[in-house]
Computed example of a mutant assay.
Amino acid sequence: MESDGVAELVTQALAALRAVTDPDDPDEYVPLLWRAAADGAAALPLGLELIGSADPVEREAGCDLLHDTCNQHEAVRAGTATALVALAQRETEGRVLRSLARAIEMTCDPRAVPVLVTLAGHPDAEVREEVARSFAEVVTGLPDGPDIHTLIGLTQDPDPHVRDWATFTLGVQAEVDSPAIRAALWERTADEHVETRTEAIRALACRHDPRAVPLLAELLDNPGGAHVLTFGAAQITDLPEPLPALPEYEPGDDWVTDAVNACNPARRARLDAWAWELVSTLHRLRPDLDAAVSMERFGWGRFVGVAAAFGTSGYDVEALLARADGSPTYAAELVATDLPRTLPDSPPGPRPQ
């Protein structure tokens, strides 16, 4: 796209933003900026110019344009983070700070953490809510990191929407565990805000905390509280049998079937045995793949990963076995066939037997 075309899209987006009467319904603004950001080389300087404007509407649009550009072009993230850190030190408008929080998250840069930690103390609840959402891509993974301490504090925010997002980000997206985190989540299981309470229960279930089991059963007993994420939490509780309400749901729904299957100890053991046989066979057939079985920390599924050089994120064990009609040996043969013997950039050499 020509730079003039990108500038025109941004001009149209600004006009659309100024015409917005409902902030939750930005109309044409969002798709226009996304299209403009597709040309990273032209969008980046425009975004940087806009965040230097005296007009808060233009600074907001500049942050949003940088967010979309970082989303589509990894190469611009470091420079964008530098500019947004500088903007955070001087910005006072709430609407701009909300967009800034979103944009700096998308840089995936560790410098975002202290910016978000500072913004978590902002008097505007909408800014704090955006901060609670925006830690997800920059979380340190340290149980006692400043991001985790801040999220724990936000789970106690007076605004229910802030508590809800902080509980979700801390409990599910952060994928980190500690007594302090569990204590914060347990406190929220008594929250008067239904969504916050539900997120806390699911997050404790993800950590295999036995206190979550009766609360999770209570959610499943109430059809109004049975969200797809609730079924996902039920999958990883390591119970010896399904929660009582699970069989009452429509068995045709995949998430119900998955939850019932995951709570079946015989099926869990069988799947583990299949996964072991599959990866053992792969090691015999293709030792160059360096295959291994893994499982999400806060998930149920088993995955077979192969050497990163092969450019694949791996295979879901259940899906692979379904493709192989339940035969681990055939599943291993399918993987061996899927992947090349010699990588394109590798020097020629003997093929593994």
Results as ranks from 00 to 15, higher is better:
residue 208 H to D: 07
residue 25 D to N: 12
residue 45 P to Q: 09
residue 37 A to Y: 00
residue 264 N to G: 02
residue 286 R to T: 06
residue 251 P to E: 03
residue 333 E to R: 14
residue 24 D to S: 14
residue 231 F to G: 04
residue 288 D to T: 02
residue 131 V to S: 00
residue 252 G to F: 12
residue 336 A to Q: 08
residue 114 P to N: 01
residue 9 L to Y: 09
residue 43 A to T: 05
residue 340 P to H: 08
residue 28 E to Q: 11
residue 187 E to M: 07
residue 88 A to C: 05
residue 140 T to Q: 11
residue 248 E to M: 13
residue 307 A to N: 10
residue 277 E to C: 14
residue 44 L to M: 08
residue 64 D to M: 10
residue 226 A to Q: 08
residue 95 R to K: 06
residue 188 R to A: 01
residue 16 A to R: 03
residue 9 L to S: 06
residue 308 A to G: 15
residue 5 G to V: 04
residue 352 P to R: 13
residue 58 E to Y: 00
residue 54 A to V: 13
residue 199 E to N: 11
residue 335 V to L: 12
residue 194 V to A: 12
residue 155 T to F: 03
residue 123 P to G: 09
residue 44 L to P: 03
residue 34 W to G: 00
residue 108 C to M: 12
residue 152 I to T: 03
residue 353 Q to H: 11
residue 287 P to A: 11
residue 123 P to W: 11
residue 246 L to A: 04
residue 171 G to N: 03
residue 235 Q to H: 06
residue 78 A to I: 00
residue 313 S to P: 14
residue 18 R to F: 02
residue 42 A to G: 05
residue 220 L to D: 07
residue 170 L to T: 04
residue 178 S to Q: 09
residue 21 T to I: 01
residue 107 T to C: 01
residue 209 D to N: 13
residue 175 E to H: 12
residue 313 S to Q: 14
residue 108 C to L: 14
residue 170 L to I: 13
residue 344 P to D: 10
residue 11 T to H: 10
residue 290 D to L: 13
residue 32 L to K: 08
residue 54 A to Q: 15
residue 270 R to V: 10
residue 44 L to F: 12
residue 87 L to R: 14
residue 244 P to H: 15
residue 135 F to W: 06
residue 348 P to H: 09
residue 308 A to E: 09
residue 147 D to V: 05
residue 185 L to W: 07
residue 238 D to K: 08
residue 157 D to W: 08
residue 30 V to Y: 12
residue 270 R to W: 13
residue 283 H to M: 05
residue 191 D to I: 00
residue 38 A to C: 05
residue 215 L to R: 02
residue 23 P to R: 15
residue 32 L to A: 04
residue 59 R to S: 00
residue 43 A to C: 03
residue 341 R to W: 12
residue 39 D to T: 10
residue 122 H to M: 09
residue 110 P to C: 06
residue 131 V to C: 00
residue 345 D to E: 13
residue 111 R to D: 04
residue 76 V to C: 05
residue 268 R to M: 06
residue 196 T to K: 03
residue 269 A to L: 09
residue 127 V to F: 03
residue 292 A to E: 13
residue 2 E to G: 15
residue 12 Q to L: 10
residue 255 W to S: 06
residue 34 W to P: 01
residue 217 A to V: 01
residue 93 E to I: 00
residue 342 T to Q: 10
residue 289 L to K: 14
residue 98 R to P: 02
residue 241 E to Q: 13
residue 193 H to N: 10
residue 117 V to S: 01
residue 191 D to S: 10
residue 227 H to I: 09
residue 241 E to K: 13
residue 25 D to F: 02
residue 200 A to F: 06
residue 232 G to M: 12
residue 256 V to Y: 08
residue 321 L to T: 02
residue 92 T to V: 15
residue 13 A to T: 08
residue 68 D to P: 05
residue 305 G to M: 08
residue 151 L to G: 03
residue 147 D to C: 04
